[in-house]
Design a protein around this nucleic acid. Structure first.
Lengths: 165, 165
DNA sequence: TATTGTTATACTCTATAACTATA
DNA sequence: TATAGTTATAGAGTATAACAATA
């Protein structure tokens, strides 16, 4: 079928309500995607992470590494499994990540006194120093995001997302 | 340093306002992550996509493939670059994805009449049939998501995310 | 010169499975 | 038997660079 499909090449851009000056490229019709929350959540998440990665580039830290460092700082002595559960990271992935953070001299793994199987995680002094500066960069990023979204939208989004856990 | 770090193994779970019955595992203190919108956007996005992937599993379709099929259906004859731009997908990644969709017999690439470099994209009959059913599964998923978030929160989130473009 | 589609590479993430050592 | 940590693998997503054909 469709041996001779109509070449319905409509160069007419289907733009939505957003018709700013010099809209660079034609936006296509999103169809049913307009009704899918996940599409918009994904786009926002990608934009935020791209900017966060750029913001943390001076320390070559990825968002996931940042979140692990923060949890270790706030919950010293916890085993890997607890960190992994709290952040929804696979144990295997976390182990690899911790090797890298240990190689950089930012974290320590000490044998747990309670449980011979587990490691108690701590930041080193260098890790604390690095994280202090990384957190400052992350806060700058967050303030830029707040400006980008507008203070009201930022606040409402945060409230909606936080009380759904 | 920290030759003898205090074994501050506090098994006391730091739980927030969410103290449901049988809170399975101790939630750790998220620290500064509580103030980062990206953290919560990411968690929601991961949950939505995991459920969507499960919902679309009968057709072995990934979210990105789904969005490409929808855009081709709604914008027949468009070249690959237009799809890639609209969905924020790399041209190279889209080319690979289209090969797979073509292999399944869901899409066609015809030489563009306007531009010798580009391919005009169309769904095949089989592609239209598949997409009709895939969209139904996606809609079921969306209704589950709406129930999961609550109708009010779902509606407010959608409104906030859609008008930020 | 710039753009379209393509191939190739690399790196991250994610998901599994299998293994050890402990519980 | 279950759990903690490790290693290995495979798949998907993302980001680049390079190339041929065309504009």
């Amino acid at each position: 079928m469709a041996a001779k499909p109509r070449p319905s090449q409509r160069a007419v851009p289907v733009i939505g309500e957003d018709s700013r000056a010099g809209a660079e490229a034609a936006r296509l019709d999103l169809g049913i995607l307009e009704g899918h929350l996940g599409y918009f959540v994904r786009r926002l998440q990608v934009e935020i992470f791209q900017q966060l990665i750029t913001a943390l580039a001076p320390f070559n830290v990825r968002p996931a590494q940042f979140s692990v460092l923060v949890l270790i700082e706030r919950n010293p002595g916890q085993p890997q499994a607890a960190i992994a559960r709290s952040l929804n990271i696979e144990r295997a992935a976390l182990a690899k990540m911790l090797h890298e953070l240990e190689r950089r001299g930012w974290i320590q793994r000490l044998p747990s006194v309670d449980d011979g199987r587990s490691h108690a995680l701590f930041l080193t002094g260098a890790g604390e120093d690095a994280l202090t500066r990384i957190k400052a960069l992350a806060q700058d990023h967050e303030r830029r995001l707040e400006r980008r979204l507008g203070a009201r939208r930022y606040r409402e989004l945060a409230a909606l997302l936080k009380d759904f856990g």
